[in-house]
């Protein structure tokens, strides 16, 4: 089994294509971070953060004076002011203008990890059918289930590599741009009406983990289509379409009660951390349950279709 995964890794990393994807990810991270440093983060650097906070506080006070402000906006502005005061009074700098600004911001690029891992996973089975090498692969003393698992594991490992690359590159790039200080900065948030200090690193880890759940689901979907239909184009196309069109579809279907059972309605687990879930009555455990069912179903279909069908390519 270990050797099979080694083989799959060799086939992934000995291809130029793979390194183009990794290179693209690195380029994106650098580009986004340099841009946001240039246009946004620069002014908060050093002691600039105090001035920026003062300006924001004045602005929010202005907003609060406006007549006919909705209750929701009002609460939000008041909370922001409370957070700003907390920062200023205790002299705890904001993450703006520090290394954390860019590192946290880069976590938004996790969608790229999903896309790139889908590309690898969508091709990892179907590609062997297209090239005909599947015949040579399946006539070895390793049954088809083992081959399938090794390919699945290798796909997910590629996702982990990209995540690692994302973290390291954004950490180094922002360290160079903003300096490597303030690593122990707390994250100041309003939780249930109270201001709390959280660990910045744990927060980042949480963001990565929650994004990871969505990545795993979409990658598993791509892998399933790849093994069931033996077509990379179909696997990559469908999965990326689902990744992006899912939310549009959800908006159109929101009035139907059953839409909460859709994959897309549950992949974004951050909906339970901040604000409203997609439909009232959905809970974190509901989503985890639904995702688990999809996960098992996808893998079951991959397995059945890959191990039972004749190889005629």
């Amino acid at each position: 089994m270990f050797n099979l995964v080694r083989n799959e890794n060799m086939k992934i990393y000995r291809r130029v294509r793979t390194w183009i994807l990794v290179g693209l990810l690195v380029a994106f991270v650098l580009f986004i971070n340099i841009m946001s440093w240039q246009f946004d983060g620069k002014e908060s650097q050093g002691d600039g953060w105090r001035t920026v906070l003062q300006q924001e506080k004045e602005h929010r006070n202005e907003v609060l004076k406006k007549p006919g402000l909705e209750a929701e906006d009002r609460t939000f502005n008041l909370q922001r002011i409370a957070v700003i005061d907390y920062h200023l009074e205790r002299d705890i700098r904001t993450e703006d203008g520090s290394i954390w600004d860019g590192v946290n911001g880069s976590a938004q690029l996790a969608i790229l990890i999903s896309v790139f891992t889908i590309i690898i996973a969508g091709d990892i089975v179907a590609g062997e059918f297209a090239s005909g090498t599947i015949k040579q692969l399946l006539i070895r003393p390793a049954n088809r289930l083992k081959i399938l698992i090794s390919k699945y594991v290798a796909s997910l490992m590629f996702g982990i590599l990209l995540l690692f690359a994302l973290f390291v590159v954004s950490f180094l790039a922002n360290g160079v741009l903003f300096g490597f200080g303030h690593l122990d900065l707390p994250l100041i948030e309003v939780k249930e009406g109270v201001i709390v200090e959280n660990n910045m690193f744990l927060n980042l880890l949480q963001t990565y983990m929650l994004n990871g759940v969505s990545t795993i689901l979409y990658v598993t979907m791509a892998f399933m289509i790849s093994s069931a239909f033996r077509s990379s184009t179909m696997a990559i196309g469908f999965s990326i379409a689902a990744l992006f069109a899912g939310n549009i579809l959800l908006e159109a279907l929101q009035r139907f009660d059953w839409s909460k059972y859709l994959l897309f309605a549950n992949t974004d687990l951050t909906q339970y951390l901040s604000g409203q879930p997609y439909q009232s009555g959905m809970t974190l455990s509901f989503s985890i349950g639904v995702l688990a069912i999809y996960f098992v179903a996808f893998n079951l279909i991959s397995w059945l279709m890959f191990t039972r069908r004749d190889v005629t390519s």
């Binding site: 099979l4 080694r6 083989n7 060799m10 086939k11 000995r14 090239s131 090498t133 040579q136 003393p141």
Partner: peptide, 22 residues
């Protein structure tokens, strides 16, 4: 089986290493 299809992006040697590991 039919044509001898190999991994074209690997060297001949690595193709053999691949099957040897199995």
């Amino acid at each position: 089986v039919e044509n001898p299809e190999m991994y074209k992006y690997l060297t001949g040697y690595l193709n053999l290493v691949h099957y040897a590991r199995m």
